[in-house]
Simulated assay, not measured.
Amino acid sequence: MEAITGGEPGPVVTEANGQRAVYFLVPAGSTARKAWPAGGTPLNATAGRISYVPIPALSGRTWPLAWRFPPTEPGRFVPALLLLNAASALLG
């Protein structure tokens, strides 16, 4: 994704402990009603369910969270279709 987007795929958060999760910030609702491959978990807030994504501060220490790619401008997100295609290619 980094190569395809010229080095700036949009905001991505990594977690340094536990399962070493990677969170791709996408526009609200853009992961709904898409067939995600096994191993990819879209976090959607739906009726009766609340999802959240931990976000580190833009500066300072926030271990175990860190920005792999910090936000570069307001409203800039990882393109959901690009993420879906990359996840499908990597996870099958």
Rank of each mutant, 00 (worst) to 15 (best):
L58C: 10
W36Q: 14
A66C: 08
T72P: 02
G60C: 05
A38T: 09
S30F: 02
I50S: 07
P64K: 15
P71K: 01
L43C: 08
A57V: 11
L65N: 05
A38R: 13
A32V: 03
G39E: 01
S51D: 13
A47Q: 13
P27F: 12
T46I: 15
L58I: 13
Y52W: 06
W67K: 12
P27S: 14
N44D: 09
P64I: 15
A38F: 08
R68D: 12
W67A: 10
A45Y: 01
A45Q: 12
R49N: 06
T41K: 01
P71H: 00
R49S: 08
A38E: 11
A32H: 00
A28D: 05
A57E: 09
P37G: 14
R68H: 14
F69I: 07
P64S: 15
Y52L: 06
T41I: 06
S51G: 13
G48R: 07
P70N: 09
P37H: 14
W36Y: 11
P42H: 02
S59A: 13
S30Q: 07
S59W: 05
Y52F: 11
A35K: 09
S51R: 07
A35M: 07
T46S: 14
W63T: 02
P71D: 04
A45K: 06
G48V: 04
A28Y: 03
P42K: 00
G29P: 03
R61W: 03
P71Q: 01
A35L: 08
L65Q: 03
P70G: 11
A47T: 15
R61D: 11
I50F: 02
A32I: 03
P27W: 12
R68G: 06
V26D: 04
I55T: 13
L65A: 07
A28R: 15
R49K: 10
A45H: 09
A35E: 11
G39Q: 08
N44S: 09
V53M: 13
P70L: 04
P27C: 10
P64A: 15
G39F: 08
W67E: 12
I55G: 12
V26K: 02
W36H: 11
P42V: 02
G39L: 07
I55R: 08
I55N: 10
P37Q: 15
F69Y: 15
A35N: 10
R61P: 01
T46N: 09
P54M: 06
V53A: 15
S51K: 06
P37F: 15
A57T: 13
